[in-house]
Every structure is written in structure tokens, then in C-alpha cells.
Design a protein around this nucleic acid. Structure first.
Length: 770
DNA sequence: GGTTATGGATTTTTT
DNA sequence: ATCCATAACC
């Protein structure tokens, strides 16, 4: 069965009710049902909802992500194709390290062939189930040649480390099921019903996995929406959802087109965006919900103002009890954009939660510690060993390490085994030898302890015996204190894992953290504004949504420019964002944004101009006019172009009061008294939060100082600020839109109601404030 | 061998 | 603006 389910049409509900029906009405044993999702979040949610419907029986269901399920299959049966049962899972940075190693072995310049690009190519090949040998079919460039060689080397590197990468989990499972008929038969026996969520995001390897598992019983039910396919860059192939009908000849196709989530106006806008895409199944969602309010578009001068406006809007609404913080989401295109919004929210003391982004597990300390655990779990893992061989510094530097490398190569041993050899090698300095011996001793004693200790105790022992924790605590580097805290936090995380999971040995724990990257999700997310990328927002809904940074080259992203398919994907991403909103949607953009530390002029996103005027209320903050790039030199009619729209100056003038009041409000809202640091939430990234809070406080301080400096030096001088109304003896009334310089030397740019825009000197021009 | 200074690249989205 | 790799210095 193929269920084409539009956004907000109750897709997860359809899946969970189907499962409940199968269990309750059809008396199908729950352990013969497999439900597959893409994200842990989705898997968790599904488990929860099924548990509610089905009760304790539901726990026997097999629910998980593709990767988690494959890992489980490979642990159980992978040995048949040479996958070691205690394999570790390499993440991005491990993979990158291995690729760099391969590049240096093959003597290829990492500057010419970027590891990231090669990684991407290898990953793509694996998603297409292509081996290194098959890689070059139909490709013949120097880059492809390099990729092929690195790919081969990389795979043997993985093997030598007893490791699999994310893509291997899929590729090797496919291989296992394809080659080992006995294994396949075993799983056919076990799994009779397969359900797949978000089928539009499926890639070739995953599709093959489903096909092999489902081919016997032909009972496969998939749910998806081609308009929400946003993972093409990861190998997802929309074609496969179409292929489904061909593959399963008597498949039923069901369309869910009623939306239960959003207002009519929001849906209308979503449709206006998506309808521009070609090659989509034409469908139009409808709803019985109320029409709702118009969407609001806000234009800011710069990203800071944009963030401030968002924060202010949220605070005002919450203060008026129109909503609670937990009902808001701020969605942006790239993670890098979260920061400016975090600062804005902090200034207004609004509690928030960043979903995704810099993760706990990606921090250097934590990765170091995990590397220790991995080495102790799987002694073949040389990548991890290399990472921690000199952490904390113990006198085994690069020179010594490459010597060990050579020894390992020469003797055909793992790096770990080579330690014993190296400790006796006369070619090494005595100091290095004893350092190596001490290190090997630490590892050996820890490995022994592993037998008798619980997971938590063992983690504690690793932190202490390796001297890592001590080194961090004794350091006088301020950052190290934070790192020590992190380490302890990690140990208590292990403790929590041990309490929650029945199977809580080291292997299970390592797998858990390898596959679950954002375990530190908020518990009390209900009371906080959620910040996340548009990608992470897929599958979620929020009463009030801010889509921010709607600017060309940000969204649609620069890298998608010029490619029709990628632009179509950006458009789908926009569609996904809009359809997250239940009651209200705000769309914001800024004319200036700092990218890579350099301020850039930005243009409003093309997506904004696709929205129908009558559904959008545009809020143009007058200080936009400060941006001279948007000033037009209009004549008598005194029209100006702002954001591609003609604005009548008289209208503009009528807004002056409002804006002036707002500006005054804003300047008083800004810290008069020293900024009291926003309440911090316990839990994830406490110190990251602290750092950011400090940065924000600093900024606020600077801003304040600036304000003081800008104040008139002498009372006799008249100073002008943008947004103020002035009267010129000849030109009549106008608004100051830009002030260059200070005091009487200032050059003012003034927009006059009848005479257009003029540049005047403050102390010469015959003007006075109105 | 360890620590600090400097220059260059870097940011799409995720299991 | 910040992270990372390499070079210079202790």
C-alpha cells in the first residue's frame, strides 16, 4: 500500500492506527511487524503513540530507524559476510580522519582533493550500493579516479579498524540479505509486515533493504509526500516512491488530502509556493479549519534587528497571554543562523531550546572519551586509539606515533598490538618507550576492569585512570574546567542509560550514542521557544512559526542556485516550513546579514514574492530606510521603492509616530541596569549557554556604551536620529533616514514628502525638528 | 615534545 | 567570527 499523505493530513496517525488495527482486530503478533523511520525522533514518537494505542503488547513491535535496525541485524548475523559482531560505528569525523589517512598513504594532496568532497562522493556511491570497483562505471575524471582509489583504501581502513560507517550499515545489510539466503529466510520468517514512514526520503540502499525483506510476504505499507522530499542531497530519490507502484503490482494507492493542522490562509500560501515545481503529483490540500489571520512579513535592516523583532513579538504576545513560549518555533535554513536569534531571545529573557546544532556528542572532550571507550571495546579501532594516544599529553607525539604506525605495518599488527612491540623498540627514545609502556599498561588494566564493573563504574574508572579528568581539573585553562564538567555529565549520562535500558553493556551504550546524536533533547520543551533548521522541523508542528532569513542566497541557499533540481528542493523545503504552522506564520528577512564575519547586502527571497499580496500583511519598519541601497531617488510623487514595492511617502509619514514610539520603547527596553543574565536551563550545553550569554551581555554592554557616546556632547547642539521628523524651510516635511557623522558635522539623508530624497548637512540646512 | 602564534578556509541540510 | 593546520618558539 502506498499512502500519499500531504502535510498535516495525519500521516503518523494513519500509520499508528493501522498498526493498532493489525494487532487488535487482525490478531497479528506484534513481533512480526517492522516499522521503519528516518529519524530517532520519529521512531520515538511512533513507539510512544503505538504504546498508547496497543498497550504493553506494543513493545514487542520492531520500530526504529533504518540505521538502527540494520545495525541490529548486522550484530546478530553479520559475521556470515565478515562483519565483526563488535564493530564500532564511525561517525563523520572518524570517517574524515580515515579519509585523510588514506590520502596521505596514497600521497594525494588533501588541498587539491578535499576530504569533505571525497567523503561525499564515497557516501553517495555507497547509497547507490556501489563498490570501489564499480565506482567508475561511466565516470572518468581525475577526481573520480582519486575517489575510487581512496574509496578502496578507505574500505580496507574500516575493515582494519573493525568499523562500519553509517552508509555501511545499509550497504552491508543489503549485501547480507542478498547473499545469504538462510539469513534472509530467517528474517522473512520473523518479519511479515513492513511499514515505512517518510518514504519520499528513501535512497537506493534503503529501498533495496525494504524490497528484500518484503519480497516474500508482499505486505509493505509506505507513507510519503513527494512535496516534502528534502533529502535529495543525501541520496534520496523521489523516483522510488513512483517506482513503488510498479514494483508491487497490486498496490493500493491512497491519497490523504485533507489537512487538519493549518489555517486556510497558511495552506493557500504553501500551495502558492509548491505549485511552481514541475514533476510533482498535482494535489491541493484542503481544510475545514478556519481561514485564520493573514501571514505577517517583516523586513529588517539587519539580522540583529530581525532577531530583536522576533523576540519582541514573542514576548509581547506571551505577556498578553496570547500564547506560551512552547508554542513558538523559529525556523532557519542553516544552523549558523541560530546564534543571532539566541542572542535576541536572551536579551528579552525568553527561554528557548536549540534543537540539533552543535551537539553534545560532537564536542572534542566527549569524542575523546568515547574514543577511549571504543578502544577498550574494540582494540582494532586504530582511529580512536590515535585520537587518544596522547590525550592527555603523555609524551607520545607525532613522531612517535608515526613510528608506531610503521611498526604496525611492518608486522601486520593492529596499532594497539604494536604498543607492546614499540615499548621495547630500541629505535625509540627511552622517554617515548616508557610513555608507551605506561599507556599500554593503563589500557590493559582498564580492559581487565571492564569485566567486573558496571557501565557507570567503568566510565568513571576510564575518566580517572587515564588521567584525563585530572588533567582537565588541574589545568588553569578556563575552558578545561568546562570540559571536566562535560566529562562528568557524560558519565552521568551513561548512568541514566544504564538505568533505562535492560541491555546496558558497553557495546549497547556505544551503539546507542553512535546512532542517537541528539539524545539531550529537552524534557520540558513545552515551556520554551524551539529553534531549529527547516530540515529538523520536518514532521513537527507548532502553533506559531517564524520562518527567518528569507533572503536570496540564504534561502534558497547559494549552493542550490543555478541547479533546477536543487532549487526545486529548496522550494519543497520552504513548503515544509510553511506547513509546520498551525495558527500563525511570520516571515522575516533582513537587508544586511553578517556571513563569514563580513556584512553582506541581502535581497528578499524569491519565495516571498510568490506569496499572494492579499494573504500577507507587510510590516515595514521605517528604519529600513537607513539602508541606502533601498532608497530610490523619486521625484514629486514621493514614492519610494522598498523591497520591490512602491511605498507612498504620505503613508510612510503617517507611520512615523508609531515608529518613533517603537524606537523609544526599544531604547528603554535595552539594558539600563547591568544585564541580569537570562535564566539558564539545566541539562544540555550549560556552558555553551553560559558562553553565549556572556557574549550577549558583552554586546549589550557595547551597545549601551555606543549609545552613551552618541549622546550630544554639548546641549546646545541639535542631533538627529533616523526616523525623526523634520521640517525644511523649502522642502517641507520629511523623515531622517540616515545619519552620517556626529553632531553638527553630520550629513543627513532626508526623505521629503514632496521633494524626494536629499542629502543635507545638519549645521547648514535650514531644518528643525517637528 | 609541548605550547602558542598565525594564516587560511569555512557553512547547507543528517543517519 | 571561528575553527583548524602549520610554523615558530619554549
Amino acid at each position: 500500500m502506498l499512502i500519499i499523505a500531504g502535510a498535516g493530513s495525519g500521516k503518523t496517525r494513519a500509520l499508528t492506527y493501522r498498526i493498532a488495527h493489525m494487532v487488535h482486530e487482525r490478531k497479528i503478533p506484534p513481533d512480526s511487524i517492522l516499522a521503519v523511520t528516518f529519524t530517532n525522533k520519529a521512531a520515538g514518537e511512533m513507539k510512544e503513540r503505538i504504546a498508547k494505542l496497543v498497550g504493553p503488547l506494543g513493545r514487542k513491535l520492531w520500530v526504529g530507524t533504518f540505521h538502527a535496525i540494520c545495525a541490529r541485524i548486522l550484530r546478530a548475523d553479520g559475521e556470515a559476510i565478515g562483519v565483526p559482531p563488535n564493530f564500532v560505528i564511525f561517525n563523520d569525523s572518524d570517517q574524515r580522519a580515515l579519509i585523510k589517512q588514506a590520502l596521505s598513504v596514497l600521497d594525494i594532496d588533501a588541498k587539491e582533493y578535499k576530504p569533505a568532497d571525497i567523503h561525499f562522493a564515497i557516501s553517495a556511491a555507497k547509497n547507490e550500493l556501489m563498490s570501489p570497483q564499480e565506482y567508475r562505471r561511466g565516470r572518468r575524471g581525475p577526481f573520480d579516479e582519486v575517489v575510487q582509489r581512496v574509496y578502496g583504501r578507505y574500505q580496507s581502513g574500516l575493515r582494519a579498524n573493525a568499523a562500519l560507517d553509517f552508509d555501511d550499515l545499509l550497504m552491508r545489510t543489503e549485501q547480507l540479505l542478498r547473499e545469504q539466503k538462510g539469513v534472509l529466510a530467517k528474517y522473512h520468517e520473523r518479519i511479515k509486515y513492513i511499514l515505512v514512514d517518510e518514504f519520499q526520503d528513501i535512497n537506493h540502499a534503503q529501498n533495496e533493504f525494504v524490497r528484500l525483506l518484503g519480497q516474500k510476504h508482499q505486505n509493505v505499507c509506505v507513507v510519503g509526500d513527494d512535496d516534502q522530499s528534502i533529502y535529495g542531497w543525501r541520496g534520496a530519490n523521489i523516483g522510488l516512491i513512483l517506482d513503488f507502484e510498479r514494483r508491487y503490482k497490486d498496490a493500493k494507492v491512497i491519497k490523504l488530502e485533507q489537512n487538519y493542522r493549518s489555517t486556510q490562509k497558511i495552506l493557500e500560501c504553501a500551495y502558492e509556493i509548491i505549485k511552481h515545481n514541475e514533476d510533482r503529483r498535482d494535489k491541493k490540500l484542503w481544510t475545514q479549519n478556519r481561514p485564520g489571520d493573514n501571514l505577517v512579513q517583516y523586513e529588517a535592516v539587519d539580522a540583529e534587528q530581525e532577531a530583536e523583532w522576533v523576540a519582541e513579538t514573542i514576548r509581547t504576545q506571551v505577556n498578553c497571554q496570547l500564547a506560551t513560549y512552547g508554542e513558538y518555533a523559529i525556523l532557519y535554513r542553516t544552523n549558523a543562523m541560530s546564534r543571532v536569534f539566541e542572542e535576541g531571545l536572551m536579551t528579552y529573557r525568553i527561554p528557548y531550546e536549540v534543537v540539533g546544532g552543535i551537539r553534545f556528542y560532537e564536542r572534542a572532550v566527549i569524542r575523546d572519551f568515547i574514543a577511549y571507550l571504543r578502544v577498550l571495546y574494540n582494540s582494532a579501532d586504530g582511529v580512536s586509539l590515535r585520537r587518544i594516544i596522547n590525550v592527555p599529553a603523555r609524551g607520545i607525539g607525532d613522531k612517535t606515533v608515526s613510528h608506531i604506525d610503521r611498526l604496525a605495518d611492518a608486522n601486520g599488527l593492529t596499532m594497539h598490538e604494536t604498543l607492546a612491540v614499540a615499548a621495547k623498540d630500541e629505535n625509540l627514545q627511552k622517554r617515548a618507550r616508557s610513555a608507551i609502556a605506561d599507556f599500554a599498561e593503563i589500557l590493559a588494566s582498564l580492559r581487565e576492569k571492564r569485566e567486573s564493573l558496571t557501565l557507570t563504574e567503568f566510565c568513571r574508572a576510564v575518566a580517572e585512570d587515564t588521567g584525563y579528568l585530572r588533567a582537565l581539573e588541574n589545568s588553569d585553562n578556563a575552558d578545561d574546567a568546562i570540559k571536566a564538567e562535560n566529562l562528568k555529565e557524560f558519565v552521568s549520562l551513561a548512568q541514566r542509560f544504564e538505568q533505562v535500558h535492560e541491555q546496558s553493556d558497553l557495546g549497547a551504550f556505544l551503539e546507542h550514542i553512535a546512532l542517537l546524536s541528539d539524545l539531550d533533547q529537552a524534557q520540558e520543551i513545552d515551556s520554551k521557544v524551539s529553534l531549529m533548521t527547516l530540515h529538523s522541523a520536518k514532521g513537527l508542528e507548532f502553533p506559531i512559526v517564524f520562518m527567518v532569513g528569507l533572503e536570496e542566497n540564504v534561502f534558497p541557499h547559494q549552493r542550490s542556485m543555478g541547479d533546477k533540481h536543487e532549487l526545486a528542493e529548496e522550494r519543497r523545503l520552504c513548503y515544509v516550513g510553511i506547513t509546520r504552522a498551525q495558527h500563525m506564520l511570520y516571515l522575516t528577512h533582513a537587508y544586511r546579514r553578517t556571513i563569514f564575519g563580513a556584512p553582506q547586502n541581502m535581497k528578499p527571497s524569491r519565495f516571498l514574492s510568490d506569496l499572494p499580496d492579499e494573504l500577507i500583511d507587510r510590516q515595514v519598519d521605517l528604519s529600513n530606510l537607513m539602508s541606502s541601497s533601498v532608497l530610490g531617488d523619486e521625484g514629486e510623487r514621493a514614492e519610494m521603492e522598498i523591497g520591490g514595492r512602491k511605498i507612498d511617502m504620505t503613508q510612510l509619514l503617517s507611520r512615523v509616530q508609531e515608529n518613533g514610539a517603537k524606537a523609544r520603547e526599544r531604547s528603554t527596553a535595552l539594558p539600563e541596569e547591568p544585564e541580569e543574565k537570562p535564566k539558564r536551563e539545566a541539562g544540555k550545553s550549560r556552558e555553551a549557554r553560559r558562553k553565549r550569554a556572556e557574549a550577549a551581555a558583552k554586546r549589550a554592554g557595547q551597545r549601551k556604551r555606543k549609545a552613551v557616546e552618541a549622546a550630544p556632547q554639548s546641549v546646545s547642539e541639535v542631533t538627529y536620529k533616523s526616523g525623526e521628523r523634520v521640517k525644511h524651510t523649502k522642502f517641507g516635511e520629511g523623515i531622517v533616514v540616515q545619519v552620517k557623522g556626529e553632531g553638527s558635522n553630520a550629513e543627513l539623508t532626508i526623505a521629503f514628502a514632496t521633494q524626494g530624497v536629499k542629502r543635507l548637512l545638519a549645521d547648514v540646512a535650514p531644518i528643525e525638528k517637528v
